[in-house]
Design a protein around this nucleic acid. Sequence first.
DNA 1: TAATGGCCGTACCGTACGTTACGGTACGGC
DNA 2: GCCGTACCGTAACGTACGGTACGGCCATTA
Lengths: 236, 236
Amino acid sequence: MATAPQTDMPAAETRGEGFSKRQCEVLDAALELLVSGDDRLSMSAIARAASCSKETLYNWFGDSDGVLAAIVRRQASKVRMPTEAGDKLGIDELRNRLEAFAGDLLTVLAGNMSVALNRLAISHAGSSKSTLGLILLENGRFAMGRRLKPLIEAGQRAGLLVGDKEAEMLFRTFFGLVVRDVQIRLLLGERLGVDQTAIAREAAEATGQFVRLFSTSTSNATSNTISNTGARIRAI
Amino acid sequence: MATAPQTDMPAAETRGEGFSKRQCEVLDAALELLVSGDDRLSMSAIARAASCSKETLYNWFGDSDGVLAAIVRRQASKVRMPTEAGDKLGIDELRNRLEAFAGDLLTVLAGNMSVALNRLAISHAGSSKSTLGLILLENGRFAMGRRLKPLIEAGQRAGLLVGDKEAEMLFRTFFGLVVRDVQIRLLLGERLGVDQTAIAREAAEATGQFVRLFSTSTSNATSNTISNTGARIRAI
DNA sequence: TAATGGCCGTACCGTACGTTACGGTACGGC
DNA sequence: GCCGTACCGTAACGTACGGTACGGCCATTA
């Protein structure tokens, strides 16, 4: 079990943030080692890569699982949600916001960091007593839902999206339309190249399909969708 | 590297099938051990569970990776595709077939066996020199695509589905609509209960959305969709 | 009947890893 | 100057696992 670190940052790994500067350096080095993926993430390898002592790792994070949880928590704490729930929502702005979100989501999920972290959490999800998967779920998939839900609900309040379904259900469908089989194929090791143009195309297609499914207006007018797929989310 | 087994079944693990009776028993015991998931799948544990010798495991499968690949291949060989490409396709039959497929897909992906095998392959996909993930991908996701593609193309030829898109693209969208976030949440360890009624409901909803997106007729008539979610596929 | 060969059970070896312990160093406080 | 603390580097220990070797059992076959 991860005990409280004996440092000036009490209960750091239980808050997911508040790691000291040096601790963040160590965790970033560990993450870099994980993403490189040449060898299994061992305490010795982490200590070597981070130029720190194994005893320090145990003092700070208590356990091997504690280090992994701290890595996940640190990356999760980097994700910020610029919700900016906008009122006076028009259909074009809704489409643009949805498309930007879809692009962000695909960019993140296709990144090395997301793949490596999800692989780590999934490989530890089999044996119980490890909550890595739940941490990743909470800060990945569920955080995405919480981030998009205000926009969906704003669209519903503005009469642009059908209001007879929960925003959660709409998000799950949007998630499926955007992600499709990309994540599982990447997790299973397929080398499918996803560049920014492909991401923009898929984001636009998914957004169009989502709007076609849940828009209240039956017009199929494909208004120009300004592609805005800049990587707004940087991790997880 | 997995060498050819020195038995009466030459090149068994390279064909994915043709394992001897005893070999199948061993692989099934290993799979059961993997699904139970209490401890990591080790050669000693497999030998103990299967009441066989470790030397026999090495003789048959050559390597630890060979055993894992054999497990995956054995399960993959159980999946059979009753394609039955039907001509004279009507919209109702198309919907029913799609919905049955969606139910099968969700039933399989939500099963313990699929989750355990995908976790195994994903955890081995990080370090190269392991093709477990590709094997699973080929016999899971891609086999599903090959199985549904005839139906989709038949629907296109019958003028029921739009014909300006590749069947592969349509399948990817269908896959996303059906699976949504279920697989990743299960892989990450969430205990989300998926019973047959929930599966039937989600399969019907996904099928309805797919048809609404790609049907050539613009009628929103939701013809009665006979729920047929019997587990037709038994593994993977 | 005797020999052969496949297979089981078990013991064994080398290695890698988690975890702990210890020596050495830097730094702030008294 | 001295002490306590935090940290680095490394060594050491116990365990678990991949892989190998060997003796014994049993069925098939000459």
